[in-house]
Amino acid sequence: MTRFQSKVALVTGGRSGIGRAIAKRLREEGARVITAQRGQDTEFECIGVDFNEPEAADDAIATVMQLAGRLDVLVNNAGMMQEQLAEEMSLVDWTRNLTVNLTTPFALIKASLPHLRQTQGRIVNIGSTEGLGSNPKHAAYCASKAGLHGLTRAIAIDHSHEGIRCNAVAPGWIDTDLNIDFIESMPDPKAFKQGLGKIHPVGRTGTPEEVANLVAWLASEESGFVTGQVWTVDGGRMAKLSLPG
């Protein structure tokens, strides 16, 4: 398929994990993909940026326009997670989490809107099932992802009449390098992975490519009547009521 022929896509955090899978999928379908994150990306055109810096979002969008002259798809994927109880977390750390996970997507969207208006572009925000529920010690992460889901709806309401659609994807447990390393750190990785399978109705965890499949559809013309939605990709986990034992 060539759904993104002649289109330009910016994928933040596109150097690894879900972001890398999204970048590859969009490129496979014809898009010119630019990634943005700290450090260099050896596979894609990239923008080295620290999204903790106030001007980072404006600079990133300006660089995309300098490089490509247009923007059709914005994927807000870059994020961070810090495990800490609320009473133990400093306001500095709280602010850093919200800056990366929520304020930066807002700033990128704001800077992108004039250009997306010209191309009838699409925004896909990568939220989380933790914007719908919570794991322990994830107050900042959950708050920021819930906020990102709310921002998604607000942008859709304000700008869909201009041809700019905005949706979010909420992945559950996905087999990124980070999660795989976490499993391997368990005393019994095999048993832990089997346990993960049992809490998912489909019997397994997900892959980055499965998230990328949905992102590509949301960014394409095929989803033209879809906006303001949060799409859960979790193997049915959030739909399953738990039982004791």
Rank of each mutant, 00 (worst) to 15 (best):
K110I: 00
R96D: 10
D234F: 09
T63P: 02
T119H: 13
G131V: 07
N101T: 06
L178P: 01
A156Q: 03
H159C: 08
D175W: 11
E28H: 10
L74G: 00
I22H: 08
I174T: 04
G236I: 01
A212Y: 06
V73M: 11
P189Q: 06
M81V: 10
H149S: 14
T205W: 07
V211M: 08
N135A: 13
E184P: 05
Y141F: 09
T12K: 07
Q120G: 15
N52A: 10
I34M: 00
A212R: 10
I123H: 00
G79H: 05
V169N: 06
R15C: 09
A139F: 11
V124I: 07
V169D: 03
A9G: 08
E162M: 14
A107F: 03
T99A: 12
A168G: 09
A86L: 15
A168D: 07
A170D: 10
I157M: 10
V11L: 01
G228R: 04
V11C: 00
R96M: 12
L241G: 04
L71F: 12
Q84T: 11
G147F: 06
P171W: 10
P114M: 13
V92K: 11
A212E: 06
V202E: 11
R237V: 10
P136I: 10
N135S: 12
Q194P: 00
